[in-house]
Amino acid sequence: MTLTTLLRITLVFTLIVIILGAYTRLEDAGLGCPDWPGCYGQLTVPTQTGDIQQAQQLFPGLEVDQYKAWLEMIHRYVAGTLGLLVLWIGIRCWKDQDSPNKLPAAIAVLILFQAALGMWTVTMKLMPIVVMAHLLGGFTLLSLLLLLYLRTRPLRIPGGDAPARRLAPLAAIGLVILIAQIALGGWTSSNYAALACTALPLCEGDWSSNLTLIEAFSPFQGQHASFEYGVLDYPARMTIHVAHRIGAIITAAVLLYLALQLWRQARSRTLQRSAVILVLLLIVQLLLGISNIVLHLPLGIAVSHNVGAALLLLTMVFINYALWRKA
């Protein structure tokens, strides 16, 4: 198997892990197994009567929910497979002197940190700052793997497309804004604030008088037995939700402007195609966000919203790579 093929497979696995993570979180199965890396002290989900009784003795007061436990464990199994794929990539790059070495090393360190965040997500009982960091770690891993893939498969743009290269600073600003918006989305989800506002375009009632920025965005929210279902009061959750909506408007405006300028100024079909993909993904993502509000966060649409964010990020990473790379 070539390194390029291996990277393609790993990129798909990473996206699957992100989807499973979102599905697990949205199904409130993040604590489906109260320990790590096993489940109720066992290597797999307890299903037999004796195993369930043993689990309840180890964790008194907790009822074994096999559906949620399996969701959590399947997520861990696939994430573990992803870790092995990343290790394989690192070994291949280390043996091949012509392959990049620093980037695979950074990816290997990141996957280890992701595993630690996965453990802390459980042991710290879904503390929002840890949950958000785990989400951002997954998106970062996806981005770095794409960069490594692009570096092993030279991108050829006839003539270098100098007019489009002038848009590189704007593309970098757009990428930073998108990352900030993804972080806001993670903070909204980890604080269970997705349904804090159910009206459009921003929020119902006199929302502007109830904003509590300090409480809403404090990274540490005190000591709690569990952060499941959130610990913030309504004004704080509403503030988070409104911030995410305002961030969506800003992000959409900047990325649409970038796409328009890229379409007008780029001479290569590769970059023009990227501009079209960016616009289409933005439209779909905005529609998914609105659908989440109108339909009260249906599971399929909510998971798709996470996937849309990942695809937008990949598109912006590619555009930045194409514009900033050496001609």
Rank of each mutant, 00 (worst) to 15 (best):
V78P: 03
I107A: 05
R25K: 06
C39G: 02
W88C: 11
G32F: 04
P100Y: 09
I107H: 04
K68Q: 12
L103M: 08
I74F: 09
A69R: 01
L110M: 05
Y67V: 14
V64K: 00
G32C: 04
I52L: 01
G32K: 00
W88K: 06
N101F: 06
K102G: 02
V86A: 05
G83Y: 07
P60E: 10
L58H: 06
Q48D: 15
A69Q: 03
G50D: 15
Y67E: 14
T47F: 02
T47Y: 04
Y67D: 13
M73W: 09
L26S: 11
W94G: 08
I89D: 12
P104R: 11
W94C: 07
K95S: 14
T49I: 13
D51Q: 15
Q48P: 00
L43Y: 00
V64Q: 01
T44W: 03
D51V: 00
Q56I: 08
I91M: 10
L31D: 08
G90M: 12
L62M: 06
L71D: 06
Y67H: 14
E63N: 14
P34A: 03
T47C: 00
L110D: 03
Y77P: 09
L112D: 01
A55M: 05
I107F: 08
W70K: 10
W94R: 12
D98H: 14
I89P: 01
E27L: 13
P46Y: 06
L112T: 10
R92Q: 14
Y77N: 08
T47E: 15
G90D: 07
W36T: 01
I111G: 06
P34I: 05
C93L: 08
G90A: 09
A79D: 06
E27V: 09
G50L: 11
I111F: 03
L58R: 15
G83V: 07
P46S: 04
K68E: 13
Q48A: 15
Q54Y: 12
V86D: 08
G83N: 09
Q48I: 00
A106G: 05
A105F: 12
T44F: 05
R92E: 12
T47P: 03
P104Y: 11
D96V: 12
E72C: 04
S99M: 14
D28I: 13
Q54F: 12
P60S: 07
A105N: 07
Q53P: 00
L58V: 00
E72Y: 05
G41M: 06
R92T: 11
L85R: 11
G30W: 08
T81V: 15
D51C: 00
S99Q: 14
L58S: 10
L84E: 11
I52S: 07
W88P: 03
Q54I: 09
C39E: 04
K102N: 08
P34D: 02
P60Y: 02
C33H: 02
C93Y: 09
T81A: 15
L112S: 07
Y67S: 14
Q57Y: 10
P100E: 10
V109P: 01
L58P: 00
K102R: 15
A79F: 10
D28H: 15
P46F: 05
D51N: 13
I89H: 07
A79C: 09
L112E: 02
L26P: 13
L43H: 06
Y77Q: 12
V109I: 13
T81Y: 07
Q42Y: 02
G90T: 10
